[in-house]
Nucleic acid binder design. Sequence first.
RNA 1: GGGCGUUUAGCUCAGUUGGUUAGAGCAUCUGCCUUACAAGCAGAGGGUCUGCGGUUCGAGUCCGUAAACGCCCACCA
Length: 844
Amino acid sequence: MEMLEKKYDHKSVEEGRYELWKENHYFDSGVSNGEPYTIVIPPPNVTGKLHLGHAWDTTIQDACIRYKRMKGFDALWVPGMDHAGIATQAKVDKRLKESGINPRSLSREEWTRHAWSWKEEYACNIKNQWAKLGLSLDYNKERFTLDEGLSKSVRKVFVDLYHEGLIYRGTRMINWDPLAMTALSNEEVIYKDIEGAFYHIKYPIKDSDEFLDVATTRPETMLGDNAVAVNPNDERYQKYIGSTVILPIVGREIPVIADTHADPSKGTGVVKITVNHDPNDYEVGKKHQLEGITVIGLDGKMNENSLHFQGMDRFVCREAIVQELKEKGYLLGVEKIIHNVGHSERTDVPIEPIVSKQWFVKMRPLADDVLQLQKDKNQKVHFLPSRYEKIMNHWMEITYDWCISRQLWWGHRIPAWYKGEEVYVGMDSPGDDWIQDEDVLDTWFSSALWPFSTLGWPQVTEDFKRYYPTSMLVTGYDIIPFWVNRMTFQGLHFTKTRPFEYCYIHGLIRDKEGRKMSKSLGNGVDPMDVIEEYGADALRFYLATSTAQGTDLRYDPEKVRSTWNFINKIWNASRFVMMNINGIEEKEKSYNDHDKWILTRYQNTIKDVTKYMDKYEFQNVGSILYKFIWEDFCDQYIEMAKFSLKENSTKVVLKEVLIGILKMLHPFMPFVTEEIFQNINASSETIMLSSYPSYDKTKIYKTEETKISDILAFVKTFRTLKQEHHIGKEFAVVYQNNEDYSFISKLLKLDGHVLEEKEGDFYTVSYHNYSLKLFDEKEITLEDQMKNEKEIETLQVSIEKRKKLLSNDNFCKKAPESLVLEEKQKLELELKKLETLLSNRNAF
RNA sequence: GGGCGUUUAGCUCAGUUGGUUAGAGCAUCUGCCUUACAAGCAGAGGGUCUGCGGUUCGAGUCCGUAAACGCCCACCA
């Protein structure tokens, strides 16, 4: 046994440990023949560094995996990363531009080579960060969304869905990102409140002096207007239905149509219809057979249909048009408003609704299957906390077809080939004279298959058979619509089962003021910096145990620091144990009272911790362990053990309880627990593969536990009284009776203070069966008496309340018997205490 | 418009089948260098659990209602 260093030094403890674990294959699955327990990591994007949110997310998973592994499960944690289409492409383009290369001047093949080298670089960074965090990932199973196997499953899913009629190609109005120059799904559009205006424009009625007041937030689209609509029931405008208005500036004639889309209560009740630039108008246009005119191009600039505005950016054009309308007398007014505008999730530019030919997944049948699944208690995905199930179900109810094609180079190429008008969808090219679709699939299309594609699907591999469906998925609530929902319907459709039994949802990490961590606010925290300062163990324990399931976490460095203190405490307690267990005999049958006290509490701790680990309530695990270790083990037991260090039983108990503590902490603080464990066992055996403590009721000693607890309560009463009355070193005590006072004397360090008998004023200190007289040399002051009186008063109130409660027939009849008994005992204790206080009063 | 969450000590948060003296960390106050740890030890103070109403012998916990803050979804010419 090597002695530990005097101080806990997280750097030297963590240094090199991960590499040893990895080399020794401790992370490998398939070693245990226990029941499989599987988690697939939410694959981080290969676009940058891991942030605190990743650290949180992966710590939770690692804690689960390590716990289950110690419990004898065949634990598999699948690592991997996501190619992150738009995000990565944007980063690669940016880097190319910075080195003076126009990314679009490269061929697709050349560009892709750059992207892969980017991927290698960032994947390497991420793996280093995983190592720093101590994640026990099985690297034998590592996957990347663009690797060969996963690409094959992506194609298989596409092809199958196509043949089932659940994927189709069609011309629809979609969300277009003019900066990334690609289509987006509805989920990738973020609505933000921004300042804008209602522009009231005069649309003159043909051959008349009259006009219609049309309000719009997007005047630039008027160049493409196809009609003006009023509600058929709106009396104000009945007479105009069927007439013609002249589009200002443009001079084009467009009809006034009747459609319920026009809401009489909104604006002026007259709405312009721009079929090609608004989703609602698009629908109206279809109904009324209006031919759309596109005026904004894919790059967000006004196109050849926009007169002298051609070439202007859409927002520059807005200003220009408003100016011209004003000059020509068509502008009736401008009304400033705050309105919601859709922005691209990735590039943050306002999205442009455009009409385009894209690939879609037909959602209704797939979503209905999930809704059906969730009605089956035995087959459903169980959310933790359960309220998040509603988020998924709601999405499944309202979802519309998913636009899956992206006009990018980085991703899975759509397995569709064209020859003239012919379309072929299949796993491979049908021949050289066919041209493959240029587009790639939405990143989430491949992510949706992650739980099973990583395990070898569509092949029915050994891994797939053994580890699928997975046990648990851990992610933030913000990812539910993008990922959890899609994994669920794809998993269900293709594997006929839920992809994971449980879905553990955590919140977002915020700063101390509750703001989201973001680059623009500059309030982000790099987990690697925290690890440098306090170590991965402190960060992990803090992250895993600080909040209840599903709630946000306000990051507080002070708490990481206090977790470091906690580890330092464990470190020092371990040093104490190791200093005092020389010559230990491992077999021991007889224990003294305080040994039995801690053994009993230790067993109860195992029971509670196991219960909460199984329920994934880590907050509770954390507080139980913290309290047990710091208060029971360190503050109380170690102090008592100092009286019996020569006894083998105490050595055995110190070692047994410490090892149990290390094991229970290990899922959260893998490094330091391993370090101490190996030192104390003087072997290279790893704590990772040791067995988790299990509850043993034969080691519960109720009588002794109660007795020592009473003694400790008595000791506390004594100390409180001594401090409150400023009793210094000169004092004397006289015992009222003689039971167990040698133990109490040691705890209170009373050597030399105990007298047989003494006359004069004294305080009585008592708790339960223990009682003594405490004499102080200095006079008892008025202040002391006041304190005593105040205590008597509050105690009397409490006694009255309890008496009243116990005399309530309803309470005695309806409350559980044990509670009534407990109340009676409490009353008894209070009455005894009152007696003591009253006798103190008499002494004054 | 539909839904969800939060509101508990100065601050950040626990409190999961309702049980009567509501907990922790940090901060504050007092006394201690007690040989594992002063990043520590021994004590103390601090809360009418957002308001109102209800169910109950008993409510931080369940029900109803109001408010503040936050989030999600949908719509917004």
